[in-house]
Design a protein around this nucleic acid. Structure first.
Length: 758
DNA sequence: GCAAGGTC
């Protein structure tokens, strides 16, 4: 007797083998892929980890040619299953022959059911009649696993089929619409315009906000503020914090302008508990990591590294409730060995440790928490940043609440009503351990009704209503979750995809021309693809398939019919759509007008050797420029005074250069001249490496290889003098809020050793 | 070369 246990991933396989054998499992390897063997009640178990899905749907090869395949036909093509993890399939086939029953022990969710079934189908091939059972467990704890393996269920084929339905539908809609838009706008190669059930509604959320901001019409208003003093200065605003008419504002201001006393009409004070945050699920984690300047993709991949190295628990989870199996106190004791040992001890010293809990409780994985203690010596850079965040969050969820003191008062100033609010944290509580959220505090003294308070100043300000702000990437992940778009494992990747497709740009994402026009086109002709409802409806259908209320085939057929209608309506306007898309793509790549011909536009183009700028009138106009090696190039203001070519802005992260597009023109050269090369008498030129790093290099390169490193931020100029020690040209640096300073760029020079950085 | 979903 032998049993094959199929697990979703390595960590689960290792844990399950351990629990089933009381730690007596053996790790083996098959062509470098690990698996486990163990004995359990005299029976041999082989525990094989998958790597999530091991197959994926795609169309047969003959449909790969976008030009030759009609999208209308593609709708009805049956996709085939391709193996994506060959070695795992081999291992399943090999071990499948050695066993006489199988247990699917993948994650307890819809995809898990399908992932398990995919594996079973490979393992079972020649043994059609061996029994397959399903272990369903809500955590990888001893109790849960024992219970699941002693009470085995049947595999839920309908549930798995519902997941397969989603795959087929997503592929059909994605492939058909992606090909249609790309072909209509002649976007081939890497520049195709993609469409998808999740990515398009997500993009639409960003585009809608951009439209809202563009259409925003600021309205002026006036604000009257009195500065009062009792023990310290504090502000009181006129009862209408925004006064919309200038006359009214003037009228009030005239009355109170010269006042020197305010009479307290009322004063209230109350305290409020400031509750600690709930345990980290993926969304909360990505959102807070974004405050630390990490994109969701960066945060996720860092968390993945920390997880595989055993520092933190599984980072993909929706759960916000610590399971009973996690012994919080014992675990805290373990974390005393971490960098934050003092903080851990403080938390431990509480009489009782009460964790917070969120509304969402799932059974697949615990919330994200630190598994073992780490110090700054163990982890560096982003890894430490992320680990510290997760450790601090864990502590905060076990820490005491804080207390806020809220005060508010109303005043009479020359017959006009003013009001003031105070919000002070009088007990820090959990915020001591979790400094990532800034509490908005404002101080206000204690007052008595009728008390007279001195006025030190009264001011009136003209202000403007502000447009709504853009969504940060962290906020976007949250909105996606609220709208049901994507999953805990895919949301960060979807956002990254929008960047990679050039649909959005910037740290706080804004839509590009192509992103905007893709959404505009879809909204006009296939609105449903831009709405989260499509996902909601698909979810409902999948539920019904799982419950046997609907047949997989019927759902797919209905979806294909709908796709056919959508495609038809798009095709009726194909020419117009193509024109609109092409126009906005031209705008996106334009850097300005061509100085060499009548009506040419200079466009960023790609060649085998990289990118360059060429004229839209090519081949009639052969004007070209090379582009800087790195950075994002956008049109700038005006033309070069020297050669008439357009000025461009080059963005390097937070740093912007303004250059003439012709890097060899005298103006550009002059702008970047930073003194004479002490080695050969050539010009030292400020330039950027392929990676965007700024340095000084000699104009006689490659004959002269003299270079100096430069600080990466701040404005640099040649100080018009040479270093007395080494002869290198002295550089002058100016930075915001700092005094200018001069330095020798030569790192081997001893000239500024006594001088510390200013 | 198309999607979204797992996981590395």
């Amino acid at each position: 007797m032998a049993t094959l246990v199929i697990c979703e991933k390595k960590s689960a396989a290792s844990r399950i083998s351990y629990l089933l054998s009381d730690g007596d499992q053996t790790q083996k390897s098959y062509y470098n892929h690990p698996y486990y063997e163990l004995d359990r009640e005299g029976e041999k178990y082989i525990c094989v980890p998958l790597r999530g899905h091991i197959i994926e749907y795609d169309y047969p090869k003959e449909y790969n040619n976008w030009g030759k395949v009609d999208e209308e036909d593609l709708i009805w093509v049956e996709p085939q299953k391709n193996i994506t993890a060959k070695r795992i399939v081999n291992l399943l086939q090999k071990t499948g022959k050695e066993v006489d029953r199988m247990i699917v022990a993948t994650d307890y969710d819809r995809e898990g059911e399908l992932i398990g079934l995919e594996a079973v189908r490979f393992a079972k091939k020649e043994l059609e009649d061996i029994p397959v059972e399903r272990a369903r467990f809500s955590s990888l704890s001893k109790g849960e696993i024992e219970k699941a393996f002693s009470d085995l269920k049947e595999i839920d084929v309908d549930l798995a089929e519902s997941a397969a339905t989603r795959q087929i539908i997503d592929l059909a809609w994605g492939a058909v619409l992606t090909r249609f838009l790309s072909k209509a706008s002649s976007q081939y190669g890497d520049d195709y315009l993609s469409v998808g059930r999740v990515q398009s509604p997500t993009l639409a959320i960003i585009v809608d906000k951009d439209h809202e901001i563009e259409e925003f019409d600021p309205e002026p208003y006036w604000k009257i503020t009195a500065l009062l003093e009792k023990d310290f200065e504090f502000e009181a605003d006129y009862k209408e914090s925004r006064i919309w008419e200038k006359e009214k504002a003037d009228e009030v201001y005239e009355k109170v302008e010269e006042a020197d006393e305010a009479k307290t009409l009322s004063f209230n004070e109350k305290t409020k508990k400031d509750w600690p945050p709930i345990p980290f699920n993926t969304t909360q984690f990505l959102s807070d990591a974004n405050k630390l300047n990490l994109s969701p993709s960066q945060a996720m991949s860092t968390a993945e590294d920390l997880y595989t190295a055993g520092w933190i628990s599984y980072p993909r989870t929706e759960n916000t409730v610590y399971p009973d199996s996690l012994h919080l106190e014992g675990h805290l004791r373990k974390l005393k060995g971490s960098e934050l040992s003092e903080e851990v001890k403080e938390i431990l010293s509480q009489d009782k440790i009460w964790p917070t809990k969120g509304k969402k409780e799932t059974t697949d994985h615990p919330p994200i928490y630190p598994i073992k203690p780490a110090t700054k010596g163990d982890l560096t850079g982003n890894k430490w940043k992320v680990y510290e965040l997760i450790l601090r969050r864990f502590l905060a969820t076990l820490a005491p609440y804080g207390i806020k003191r809220l005060r508010n008062a109303e005043f009479n100033i020359e017959g006009e009503e003013f009001k003031s609010k105070g919000n002070e944290l009088i007990k820090k509580g959990w915020r001591k351990y979790y400094p990532y959220y800034k509490a908005k505090e404002s101080k206000m003294p204690e007052l008595d009704k009728g008390e007279r308070v001195d006025i030190t100043d009264v001011g009136m300000e003209e202000k403007e209503t502000q447009p709504p702000s853009r969504y940060s990437q962290g906020k976007l992940v949250k909105i996606m979750e609220d709208e049901g778009l994507g999953t805990k494992s895919t949301r960060h990747g979807i956002i990254q995809k929008l960047y990679n497709r050039n649909f959005i740009s910037g740290k706080v994402p804004r839509s590009t021309n192509s992103g905007r026009s893709v959404i505009d086109t879809l909204e006009k002709h296939a609105e449903m693809v831009t709405k989260p409802d499509m996902t909601r409806e698909l979810e409902e259908d999948m539920q019904k398939i799982a419950e046997e209320d609907l047949e997989k085939e019927d759902v797919i057929k209905e979806s294909r019919d709908m796709l056919q209608k959508v495609l038809k309506s798009l095709r009726e306007e194909e020419e117009k759509i193509g024109k609109e898309l092409k126009q906005s793509l031209t705008d996106q790549h334009s850097v300005g007008n061509c100085p060499e011909c009548e009506d040419g536009i200079l466009l960023i183009r790609k060649s085998k050797n990289g990118r360059f700028v060429g004229c839209s009138n090519y081949p009639d106009c052969k004007n070209t420029y090379s582009l800087p090696r790195s950075g994002n190039v956008k049109p700038g203001k005006g033309e070069c005074p020297e050669c008439g070519a357009p000025m461009v802005k080059v963005y390097h992260g937070g740093d912007t250069e303004k250059l003439c597009i012709d890097i060899n023109c005298d103006h550009s050269q002059e702008q970047r001249y930073r003194g004479e090369c002490p080695e050969c008498g050539g010009d030292m030129i400020e330039q950027r490496s392929y990676k965007g790093k700024r340095f000084l290099g000699c104009s006689n390169y490659p004959e002269c290889e003299n270079t100096y490193p430069l600080p990466q931020k701040g404005n640099l100029l040649y100080a018009e003098k040479k270093c007395e020690e080494c002869g290198a040209p002295i550089q002058k640096m100016s930075k915001k809020n700092k005094e200018d300073w001069e330095f020798c760029p030569n790192p081997d020079c001893s000239s500024d050793e006594d001088e510390e950085d200013k």
